[in-house]
């Protein structure tokens, strides 16, 4: 099997969500001497783009996004082992800690964001639903997260997002993590008001937002949050 074929098959395996095959082909790519960053750029990223486009077109759905994200993560785990510290850092987009805020058990939007972020090359730690503010912070420290992403669909859970940021400040950790928000009642105004770093209306926005935060010169605790896709008023 030549290098070009391996890249093509790996891309296909990620699209199909075949994590076993993705790992096998990633190992093969390493054996053939392909640079891990080349594999990411020419196989994994294109695969993720294709799945994302299919989702937007209504040709792929949340399960396909999830399994493609899992396959991409499995492949990245193999490839990143081969890299030196500096290259590994360059290849990793970052770790996103994701959860639905305390008091809320709705998980569909969160699952969608998890899948889209994974498909965009982020390591996503999914804390699930009904997550207390302190649990976000403890998990962020444990996982060495770059971004804490919290969502809620119900208005009475919104105050906990502010509580999490206040707790981060009180613990002297606000500059350790970007904090981004999403969910039905969350607005750009709320994001600004509580001092979060960014807001997105849907899963694609969340990916755009995370990409901007990790690739720019931003530091957590932005004076002005980054707003993706705000609703417009008359």
């Amino acid at each position: 099997m030549d290098k070009e074929q391996v890249l093509k098959d790996l891309c296909e395996a990620v699209i199909e969500g075949d994590d076993v095959k993705a790992v096998e082909l990633s190992n093969k790519a390493v054996e053939l001497g392909l640079a891990p960053l080349t594999v990411v750029k020419e196989a994994i990223q294109p695969a993720m783009d294709i799945v994302g486009d299919r989702f937007q077109e209504g040709e792929a759905f949340l399960p396909e996004l999830i399994v493609a994200g899992d396959a991409a993560t499995a492949s990245l785990d193999v490839l990143l082992e081969q890299l030196s510290g500096e290259d590994s850092a360059a290849a990793k987009k970052g770790t996103v800690l994701l959860g639905v805020m305390f008091g809320d058990n709705h998980d569909i939007g969160k699952n969608l964001v998890q899948a889209v972020l994974s498909a965009n090359g982020f390591k996503v730690i999914d804390l699930g639903v009904n997550v207390a503010p302190k649990a976000f912070i403890e998990a962020a420290a444990k996982e060495n997260a770059d971004i804490i992403a919290s969502s809620t669909l119900i208005t009475t859970s919104l105050p906990y997002q502010r509580e999490m940021i206040e707790l981060l400040k009180a613990m002297g950790k606000r500059e350790d993590y970007f904090v981004i928000l999403g969910g039905g009642p969350v607005t750009p105004e709320w994001t600004q008001k509580i001092g979060a770093d960014g807001y997105g209306r849907d899963a694609k926005d969340a990916a755009n937002l995370c990409n901007k935060l990790v690739s720019g010169d931003y530091k957590p605790g932005l004076d002005e949050p980054i707003i993706e896709n705000a609703l417009k008023s008359k």
Partner: peptide, 14 residues
């Protein structure tokens, strides 16, 4: 009871 087009059940038919 909710269902989501594009969610776990997939296409509109799902």
């Amino acid at each position: 009871s909710p269902s989501m087009i594009g969610g776990m059940a997939g296409p509109p038919e799902g």
